[in-house]
Design a protein around this nucleic acid. Structure first.
Lengths: 342, 342
DNA sequence: TATTTTAGCTAAATCGATTTAGTGACTAAC
DNA sequence: GTTAGTCACTAAATCGATTTAGCTAAAATA
């Protein structure tokens, strides 16, 4: 049994499908269809369980009420939670979300943008991987509105929603300094990404302001597709040699790094915070229950998601507006727990 | 500037759009279009940056190469990881995934199924909430193929992929018993859901097999939308009174419960596993790094996701096949860590 | 009475693909 | 020299909506 179409209803009632369309779109009055006929149409539509074909609507109107979300990895709770906020806020505006995980891989993200464009999404929310500048530039020349989140490219004019990574890292490092830590390390990711770069810059600035020289050996930059081994190696280099322990604190630039790091530190038999203090970006669940709950630089995921959707909705509904890009930087929230001692 | 359509290419070359369509779909040979013309069409298509309009394709062919995934909450790492596996496997078959979080709310899931059907998804993967039997029944009478994951309804004939929850819980409980625990509690969710029910059944069976009477006061059933307070209350009842400690071990039926539980137990000043032993379903990241890493009943997320997509693809590509529903039960993996002592 | 309005509706174009059923020109066969 | 086949391509229908332009009969106005 086929699904009911406008035409089926029209034939069943002996009227035109134009009329049926008008009525079901609530434009009965506007096109002065008689009350009586309106009622009939609506009754039959219900009776035949009419469901509009959104694909057909999309083709005709050019609108799909769908937004494409491209993030690194939906399995990463940071993006999972962010995705959820976006999904929720989009739903409030009547939009669905198609998720794509790019794995921080620019080829993948290019492919995904392309496929989603072919699917006529009305807009994008993108957390762009490194080396995807050309794609973002191409997008910005097209007519599909988009918003970047988590990172952006300073050299390209776009909408973006990020947090104050510099300040967050500065505060976190400062916190460690105030507690007497002197040899503070930073484990981070590829710095071609502006958010990672800002975090390390903030870290350095805090050291400099405290008259502590920056030791590049204490900054461990891992590739995006890192695993336990990479983190383990970095930590080995920092505190592996008991006769020459190089660090008394670590600032992890992401929670994925931090979680792996803590696992590794524990397995080496070190105690947090006595042997080594820890601060991390992102308020992961794991941090709340681990050996000594971790002090974190939390990101306002709810606000990031909501704002991103708002900005996008604005672009979608006012496509012809003269352009002022929304460049929004939100505050981080510093949450003190036990991983830095006191 | 509008996007290039088949028609644009056809006009530009002075041929019919039929021909262009044939060529671009690789059917040039089959419809004996001359080599020369084929080449020209492909060159122009590239030159004009032709991107097929998938919406139009979808309308004509009835296929969107999209599957709808309805889960409880994409922010929950269990579903996030599962979603990722599904996304990955679907991509291998050329499919995109639209995620919807139902929050275990049957009204929401109904709405979402409806919207996704209107969007002509080619199939569904659903983790159905309680009281959504009618929707699943309705789906099974329609023509959109679907697969249930994580849970199913025994009274409805459908495809499903689940794990052996009974066995997982049985083994976990047995493990606790072998280590000398006598007063084992179970904190779980609404048992109208077959997976939760099976877990508690497995737990009970292990007790019975060890000749320990089942004490219903040790089984705490929380609502789906639980928060820290609910968990806290349950744990208070179990071990809150120092003069009358009712439990020496807890089996958590989900990791969300377990993580909240551990947070709560720690804040009450109890030590795991000395004061109380812990086992939980789901191998959450947090469990790897917490005070004493948690022994878990892990679910093979990769296999669940892959199998679900395979079964669905099979249904999509052979819609007319005589029906044998795939009812697949996968094994859980018991991972021993330190939360039960030794 | 002739003309204009209005009410209430419909025909047909359109979005951008796919696909069926041909068409005309040329060659080969009987 | 008619018929049949092959080659290389095209016209037009179709999917299911939206939307513009227009039509007819009755009512209102001049």
């Amino acid at each position: 049994m086929k699904r009911t179409s406008l035409n089926d209803i029209a034939k069943h009632l002996g009227v035109s499908k134009t009329l049926v369309s008008f009525v079901l779109n609530g434009k009965g009055k506007e096109f002065r269809i008689s009350e009586e006929v309106c009622q009939k149409v609506m009754d039959v539509a219900k009776e035949m369980n009419y469901q509009p074909n959104r694909i057909a609507q999309g083709l005709r109107t050019g609108k799909t009420n769908t937004i494409g979300l491209i993030i690194a990895d939906i399995a990463n709770p940071f993006f999972g939670k962010l995705g959820r906020e976006i999904e929720q806020e989009a739903a409030r505006h009547g939009y669905r979300v198609v998720f794509s995980s790019s794995d921080e891989n620019p080829e993948k993200s290019k492919e995904q943008i392309s496929v989603l464009q072919q699917s006529q999404v009305d807009g994008f929310i993108i957390s762009p991987p490194i080396n995807s500048e050309d794609q973002i530039l191409a997008l910005s020349k097209g007519h599909t509105p988009f918003v970047l989140i988590d990172r952006y490219f300073p050299e390209i004019e776009t909408n973006y929603i990020v947090v104050n990574n510099f300040e967050g890292a500065y505060n976190a490092t400062n916190h460690l300094l105030k507690l007497g830590r002197k040899k503070i390390a930073n484990i981070t990711l590829n710095m071609n990404l502006v958010n990672m770069k800002d975090r390390t810059e903030g870290y350095k600035k805090a050291l400099i302001d405290a008259s502590i020289p920056v030791d590049e050996n204490l900054i461990k930059v891992l590739p995006f597709s890192h695993d336990n081994k990479d983190v383990s190696k970095a930590i080995q280099e920092l505190i592996g040699d008991r006769n020459d322990i190089k660090a008394d604190a670590i600032l992890f630039s992401t929670s994925k790094l931090g979680i792996m790091g803590i696992e590794c530190i524990s397995s080496m038999g070190f105690k947090i915070p006595d042997d080594i203090a820890i601060v991390s970006f992102d308020n992961a669940d794991a941090y709340k229950i681990c050996v000594s709950p971790v002090t974190v630089v939390g990101q306002p995921l709810n606000e990031i998601g909501k704002t991103a959707v708002h900005v996008l909705m604005n672009e979608i509904t006012h496509p012809d507006m003269i352009h002022k890009f929304q460049k929004i930087t939100l505050k981080t929230e510093f949450i003190v727990r036990k991983s830095c001692g006191s």
